[in-house]
Design a protein around this nucleic acid. Structure first.
Lengths: 232, 232
DNA sequence: AGTCGTCAAGAGCAGTGCTCTCGTTTTCTT
DNA sequence: AAGAAAACGAGAGCACTGCTCTTGACGACT
């Protein structure tokens, strides 16, 4: 009985997947604004209204693509970290961040969907949060393990954060049990710096200014490791 | 003679200004994607095709808004720095960056136009570069003057940058004559970190995570000052 | 076997950027 | 001052978008 029901659901799942695949291809070439439900339908040989059986609106399609994007990025990062020697904390930090940058550079439009300006009229639903934290969770794990191994000694770079500021980062601290608040904040700073760089690079702010961006990015990562006090 | 000619050009300039004003208001409420030439024309009591006498395409209107945005941000930053005591380099750094963040938070859609993902199908023409460097020029001035005053002693945060990496930042170095390459790079890193934070904040990445963002941002700025070696 | 839900298709609505044409008005030239 | 030239607003129209509603056919469950 489930077989027949599955028969229908299978073709439905397949069509849903085909829609997202075509949409992702359109997204990669045209960008988020150029994503057109009618064009997707045309490419599938369907009529435009039929798409709405699978995605109630354009925003729902975008949401699916966003979740897929977070998962693709998160999976790439997780795989990189899993392939690294556990005790090489500095190396893990460098490789993980390079993976993030590589992914962003090779998927600029998808990256823009995740970390660029929100699409007009679109507000991300809660469904995305689970997939969104995969990359920051990896950083948290690296810092936590490095701290346990005594590989973190943050340098003195000015006045320590006030308890109120430390408290503000409580949600991030939850990802790094046992790590002191100052180190958590340094990690968050490094995190925003990395994405700040990637944003600038992907969105063209370095055009005609910096050419060998991977090398400068690598230097950025090492300076950030220094500010976090990640020594090995 | 110029009076009569000016008569027409004056009304033209006035209408052009009215168009950009209405467009900016639309941009502020709807975002870049919701900017509609027809809606602007409607609000002016014109017919849509008349707008094209003033802006050949929607992209040209966007370009005008982008240039205006860079100038508004740059002017705010310059005014802040001009009002600060010249020798208070750390204070200038803090105030200038807070001004940038304040502007971004209070003009999120305009900010998104400047530093978010590029508008679909839109490629910034060269006209924007002159206005775009006003804020980074201010940072360059602060660092240059601080360096001359001996207020910069960058801490050791790992291996120094290779000559090749320093050479990549030549265009940025040109803004800071006499400043050593390592400091220039630290400055560029701080710069990308600041905008990385602002991006995260404006684009909603800190929602339900960090509440008192100004305070944490202030801490970020002080850590970055320490990274640059800006001590006073 | 009959009923009910799912589906693709088509027409249609309101909106968009943009083009072209047509009189009118203003400016420049002779 | 008169005529040529340029600029202008209005209107119709094209191709496109997201989305809704209805219709008729097919497949699934009682």
């Amino acid at each position: 009985m489930t077989a027949s029901r599955t028969a229908r659901e299978r073709v439905r799942a397949e069509l849903t997947r085909e829609i997202t695949d075509i949409a992702r291809r359109q997204l990669a070439t045209e960008g988020a604004g150029g994503l057109s439900l009618r064009a997707v339908a045309r490419e599938m040989g369907m009529v435009s209204s039929a798409i709405y059986r699978y995605f109630p609106s354009r925003d729902d399609l975008l949401t699916a693509l966003i979740i897929d994007g977070y998962n693709a990025l998160g999976e790439a990062v997780e795989r990189t970290d899993a392939a690294s020697p556990t005790g090489d904390f500095l190396g893990r930090w460098l490789r993980v961040c390079h993976t993030m940058r590589d992914w962003a550079v090779s998927h600029p439009h998808e990256y823009a969907l995740l970390y660029g300006s929100p699409v007009p009229g679109y507000h991300a639903p809660q469904d995305t949060v689970a997939a969104r934290v995969r990359d920051v969770a990896v950083l948290g794990r690296i810092l936590t393990e490095a701290h346990r191994a005594g590989a973190i000694t943050p340098p003195d770079l000015g006045p320590p954060p006030s308890p109120a500021v430390v408290a503000e980062a409580a949600d991030i601290s939850a990802l790094m049990p046992g790590v002191p608040g100052e180190v958590v904040l340094r990690g968050a700073i490094a995190w925003t710096s990395v994405y700040g760089w990637i944003n600038f690079e992907v969105f063209g702010q370095f055009d005609n200014t910096i050419e060998d961006r991977k090398s400068v990015f690598d230097h950025l990562l090492r300076v950030l490791a220094g500010t976090m006090g990640l020594t090995r």
